[in-house]
Design a binder for these strands. Structure first.
Length: 466
RNA sequence: GGCGAGGUAGCAAAGUGGUAAUGCACUGGUCUGCAAAACCGGUAUGCGCGGGUUCAAUUCCCGCCCUCGCCUCCA
C-alpha cells in the first residue's frame, strides 16, 4: 500500500506513486546558510525525512534533492560582516547544517546542489523566459517575471489576482528600492542587477552583472536534477506563497512540464504559543538545546510528535516528555532483545495498524500511539522466540520509518559519581545491612537532595543521577 | 479584508456517525524494611460556543467566538 499524502494544490489526500513507476523523485527547499538553522527549520526537514523513510520502507526507492541557498541578501550581508568571502562564509554554515542534520538522524539528500554552482542554469532559464515574453529587463539591468503572463499564477496559494494586488500595494512603501522599475508590483525578480553593496558577489549575464533572484535557483536546479515533471515538492507552509508560486510560474513557462505533481507543506513550529523569532528570544538552535542537556534524538522525537500539518507548540516540558517516551521504547526493546537478539526489521509485524496509520498522510502521532499500545499488549513472559522476533523486528521497522534511534537505557549509563556521594551511598548500604533503617533513610534523603538516587538490588546498590 | 491551519483530559496529541488511542504528569495496588524499577489498575459522561440533521454527533450541516500562520525576507 502506498503512502497517501495531502497535496496542497488539490487539497486532497493523494496516493504517492512514482511517475516513472520506480523511483519517487522529490525536491525540498533547503536552508539559506547564513547562520545556524533553528528547530523550527528542522521541523520541516525532519517531516520530509519521515516522508522519505516511509516511502522507502514501503519499498519505493527515492531520489531526494535539497538545495543550499548560498547567495542572497542575507548571506552577502553577513559574510561581509564576518569579513569572509561569500564562499568561505557559506561553506562554514553548510558544514554546521550537515552536522546538525546528522545529529538529528536525517538521511542525506542524494543531491544537494548549491545556487552559486548553478548560475549558468539559472541564466539559461531566464533567457527562455525572456524569449517567450514571460520575462523582461528593466532599465537598471534587473530582470523580472511578468506575472500577468501566466494565467495559473496563484493556484497553489489560492490567492486571486485582486488579493495579490492588495497585498502588494500594502507593502509597496516598504518595497526595496532596487525594485522600482517593475512593470507590476506583483512581478518578481529573476535577476538582480549588481549593486555597490554586493561587493565581489556578482556574475556576468546577458543583462549585465548581477546575481540570480531567490526563487529561480530552485526552478533551475529542479530542471537539472529532476526534469520538467517530478513527483513531489516540499517545504514549510510559509513558502507556498510566494516562493513556490513563483517556482511554478518560472518552470511552467520555461518548460513543457507540469513541474511538481504533488505538494507537501509542513506547518510551523511554535514556541510558547507563538511564532519563534529572534526578537522574542524564543528561537532555539540544536546547540542551545544540547547545552540545556537535551539530546538531538529527544529534539527529533518532539518534532515528529505532532502531525506535520498541524502547528506544534515546542516546550521544554515536551522535551522531558520525549526523554521518558524514548526510555520506555528502549526498555521495551531491551526486554524483547533477550528473546530475539538478532534483528531483521523488514515488516511491521504486530505493528501493522501503526504502519497503516503512518501511511495515512504521515500520521506520526497516531503511529506512535499504535506502537505504545502494541507494546502494552505484549506480554514478554508469554512470548515464543518467534513472536518476540516478530515484535522486535516490527518495532524496529517502525522506528526506522520514523528515524528514531533508541537511547541507552538509563540505568545502564555509567555516570560519574563523585567520591563523597559514593561514600555516602556506601554508608547507607552499610546502615541498611545493619537494619538501621532510620540512618539509611536519612542518608537516602541526603543523597536525593544532592541530586542522586539509590537503586537497591539483592546484593548491592547503584547510584544514579536524579 | 482574503487565504490557510487549529481549538479534544493538568500538559502534549491521535481518532471516529454509535457513546473517546497514546506519551508525560498525577494516582491506587502488587513487590520492597522504605524506595527505585517492573507489572496490574485509575484519572475527559467529555471533545471551543449556539443551533440544526439523525434512532444516535465530539465526528455531518449552519452561524458565532478564540488561537496561529501566510498575503513578495521567512522552514
Amino acid at each position: 500500500m502506498p503512502l497517501k499524502l495531502h497535496d496542497t494544490l488539490s487539497r486532497a489526500d493523494l496516493e504517492l506513486r512514482p511517475l516513472d513507476g520506480k523511483t519517487l523523485r522529490f525536491y525540498c527547499c533547503g536552508p539559506t546558510v547564513y547562520g545556524p538553522a533553528h528547530v523550527g527549520n528542522f521541523r520541516t526537514f525532519v517531516a520530509q525525512d519521515v516522508m522519505r523513510r516511509v516511502v522507502e520502507a514501503s519499498g519505493t526507492p527515492t531520489l531526494h534533492v535539497r538545495n543550499i541557498t548560498d547567495v542572497d541578501d542575507k548571506t552577502i550581508r553577513d559574510s561581509q560582516k564576518a569579513g569572509q568571502t561569500l564562499a568561505d562564509f557559506t561553506r562554514g554554515w553548510t558544514e554546521k547544517f550537515h552536522a546538525d542534520c546528522d545529529a538529528l538522524n536525517l538521511l542525506r539528500p542524494h543531491v544537494e546542489p548549491s545556487a552559486v554552482a548553478h548560475i549558468p542554469h539559472q541564466i539559461a532559464m531566464i533567457e527562455k523566459l525572456a524569449a517567450t515574453g514571460h520575462a523582461y529587463a528593466a532599465a537598471d539591468g534587473s530582470v523580472y517575471f511578468r506575472v500577468s503572463s501566466f494565467k495559473d499564477y496563484g493556484r497553489l496559494s489560492h490567492l486571486e489576482d485582486r488579493e495579490l494586488r492588495l497585498g502588494a500595494s500594502e507593502s509597496a512603501s516598504a518595497t526595496d528600492s532596487d525594485e522600482y522599475s517593475k512593470d507590476s508590483l506583483t512581478d518578481f525578480a529573476l535577476w538582480k542587477a549588481r549593486k555597490p553593496e554586493d561587493g565581489a558577489n556578482y556574475w556576468p549575464s546577458p543583462w549585465g552583472e548581477g546575481r540570480p533572484g531567490w526563487h529561480l535557483e530552485c526552478s533551475a536546479m529542479i530542471l537539472e536534477y529532476l526534469g520538467e515533471d517530478f513527483d513531489l515538492h516540499s517545504g514549510g507552509v510559509d513558502l507556498i506563497f510566494p516562493h513556490h508560486e513563483n517556482e511554478i510560474a518560472q518552470s511552467c513557462c520555461s518548460t513543457h512540464g507540469r513541474f511538481a505533481h504533488h505538494w507537501m507543506h509542513v506547518a510551523h513550529l511554535m514556541v510558547d504559543g507563538g511564532k519563534m523569532s529572534k526578537s522574542l528570544g524564543n528561537l532555539y538552535t540544536l546547540e542551545d538545546l544540547r547545552q540545556r542537556g537535551y539530546s538531538a534524538a529527544e529534539v527529533r522525537y518532539v518534532l515528529i510528535s505532532g502531525h506535520y500539518r498541524a502547528p506544534l507548540n515546542f516546550t521544554f516540558h515536551s522535551l522531558d516528555s520525549a526523554r521518558q517516551a524514548l526510555q520506555k521504547l528502549a526498555k521495551a526493546d531491551k526486554v524483547l532483545a533477550l528473546l530475539a537478539p538478532n534483528l531483521s526489521p523488514a515488516s511491521p509485524g504486530p505493528f501493522q495498524d501503526a504502519w497503516d496509520t503512518l501511511l495515512n498522510d504521515l500520521n506520526v502521532p497516531g503511529a506512535l500511539g499504535g506502537i505504545f499500545g502494541g507494546l502494552n499488549k505484549l506480554k514478554p513472559a508469554t512470548l515464543t522466540a518467534e513472536e518476540a522476533a516478530s515484535a522486535r523486528n516490527g518495532l524496529h521497522f517502525m522506528l526506522g520509518a520514523l528515524g528514531i534511534v533508541l537511547p541507552p537505557v538509563a540505568e545502564e549509563t555509567v555516570a560519574e559519581v563523585p567520591a563523597d556521594i559514593q561514600a555516602l551511598a556506601q554508608q547507607r548500604w552499610d546502615a541498611k545491612q545493619a537494619r538501621d533503617w532510620a540512618t539509611a533513610d536519612t542518608l537516602r534523603k541526603q543523597l536525593e537532595t544532592a541530586g542522586w538516587l539509590i537503586k537497591d538490588s539483592k546484593d548491592g546498590f547503584q547510584v544514579l543521577p536524579k
